[in-house]
């Protein structure tokens, strides 16, 4: 399946915006692992504009914004 990945804020440090091909059934958590985003960052996946359980499978043509909740003071 084709997924559009859009890194937000700090995640741009690790990933560039891209269309990527993934096996069917991949979850946001698996995607985060495949993209080698450091495991210490707590992540949120916004799929087609709405936040999604990290373990719920993505679908073909989904747009996934990857966000970490880490913040400064």
């Amino acid at each position: 399946m084709q997924i559009r990945v859009i890194p937000i804020g700090l995640i741009r440090r690790f990933v560039s915006e891209a269309e990527i091909t993934l096996p069917d059934g991949v979850t946001p958590r698996q995607l985060i692992g495949l993209l080698r985003i450091p495991g210490e960052l707590k992540m949120v996946a916004i799929v087609n504009g709405k936040s999604r359980d990290l373990d719920q499978s993505l679908e073909d043509r989904d747009e996934v914004k990857l966000v970490t909740v880490i913040t400064g003071g």
Partner: peptide, 19 residues
């Protein structure tokens, strides 16, 4: 991260989480 872009380094991410 904050050395590079300051304490607002991930302000953009914070907007998406509603912080």
């Amino acid at each position: 991260v904050i050395r590079e872009n300051g304490t607002a380094a991930n302000l953009e991410g914070g907007v998406y989480t509603g912080d």
